[in-house]
Amino acid sequence: MLDALLPIVLFVFATSITPGPNNLMIMSSGLNFGVSRSMPHFLGICIGYPAMIIAIGLGLGALFNQFPLLHEIIRWVGIAYLLYLAWVIAATREVGSAEGKKPFTFLQAVAFQWVNPKGWIMAVGALAAFTTPDGTMLVEAGRIALTFILIGGPCIVVWLMFGVGLKQLLKDPRHLRIFNITMGLLLAASVVTMIH
């Protein structure tokens, strides 16, 4: 069992600790709103993403295979939304002013998982790599989802705390502006690589 679990753990760690839309947005939330106001956003990622993995494993993947246009629509909505969020982050001029002074809610963060292109790539990749044709999909998808909670959650905390820690360094409005523009550009770049 450990032999089967270790590759999943490594995959989840590698995909959860690297920059992507969720991590860049939670870091920006930590910077602009602090830990307590970012908790609904954090929990929405930690619960919403594993729920998406289970849902895909239990049949949405088949639905998208049957109706590829539906997947394309979700993908392009996600790309457009991420580019909008990149602009909002880049345009933030003072700590706490992002998104009209309101961090993501729990439900917004859960819903965001469904339009996050990197999230889709990670979920489909994990399900393809770590499930078996003769296995029980609910059990195997559940194991992957649980690993994302146990390993991915702490990785997201790292990004949240990094954002909180930057608050002291970015008291100078010029530094904050450079940081937010950089984060906005990185978020936009993470989306551009998904357009093909």
Score class of each variant (00 low, 15 high):
residue 95 V to A: 14
residue 44 G to N: 00
residue 134 D to G: 04
residue 80 A to F: 09
residue 112 F to C: 11
residue 143 R to F: 08
residue 58 L to A: 07
residue 92 T to Y: 06
residue 131 T to Q: 04
residue 84 Y to N: 07
residue 86 A to C: 09
residue 52 M to N: 13
residue 144 I to P: 04
residue 67 F to E: 04
residue 136 T to E: 12
residue 142 G to P: 07
residue 124 V to Q: 11
residue 67 F to P: 00
residue 117 P to D: 04
residue 96 G to D: 05
residue 137 M to G: 08
residue 127 L to R: 11
residue 132 T to E: 05
residue 113 Q to V: 10
residue 117 P to I: 07
residue 96 G to K: 07
residue 62 A to Y: 03
residue 42 F to C: 00
residue 106 F to M: 01
residue 138 L to G: 05
residue 52 M to T: 10
residue 61 G to S: 14
residue 101 K to M: 04
residue 138 L to Y: 09
residue 146 L to Q: 06
residue 113 Q to T: 06
residue 77 V to W: 05
residue 61 G to V: 05
residue 129 A to Q: 11
residue 69 L to G: 14
residue 60 L to R: 06
residue 77 V to D: 04
residue 78 G to C: 08
residue 54 I to Y: 12
residue 43 L to E: 00
residue 143 R to I: 13
residue 66 Q to K: 14
residue 44 G to T: 00
residue 124 V to S: 12
residue 113 Q to A: 03
residue 93 R to N: 12
residue 59 G to Q: 09
residue 127 L to K: 08
residue 116 N to D: 11
residue 131 T to H: 07
residue 73 I to V: 15
residue 140 E to R: 06
residue 58 L to F: 12
residue 109 A to T: 01
residue 59 G to N: 11
residue 111 A to L: 15
residue 104 F to V: 01
residue 68 P to M: 13
residue 40 P to M: 00
residue 95 V to S: 07
residue 97 S to T: 01
residue 136 T to H: 13
residue 129 A to W: 06
residue 71 H to S: 14
residue 102 K to D: 02
residue 92 T to P: 04
residue 142 G to Y: 08
residue 58 L to P: 05
residue 69 L to T: 13
residue 71 H to Y: 15
residue 56 I to S: 04
residue 65 N to Y: 08
residue 74 I to P: 05
residue 119 G to P: 11
residue 89 I to L: 12
residue 81 Y to G: 09
residue 83 L to V: 07
residue 101 K to W: 01
residue 62 A to C: 02
residue 104 F to H: 00
residue 65 N to S: 15
residue 64 F to I: 11
residue 64 F to Y: 14
residue 59 G to D: 11
residue 124 V to H: 10
residue 89 I to Q: 08
residue 92 T to M: 09
residue 106 F to H: 01
residue 141 A to V: 01
residue 88 V to E: 13
residue 84 Y to G: 06
residue 94 E to Y: 03
residue 133 P to D: 12
residue 64 F to N: 06
residue 39 M to F: 02
residue 82 L to I: 15
residue 48 G to I: 12
residue 94 E to M: 03
residue 113 Q to S: 09
residue 80 A to W: 05
residue 96 G to H: 05
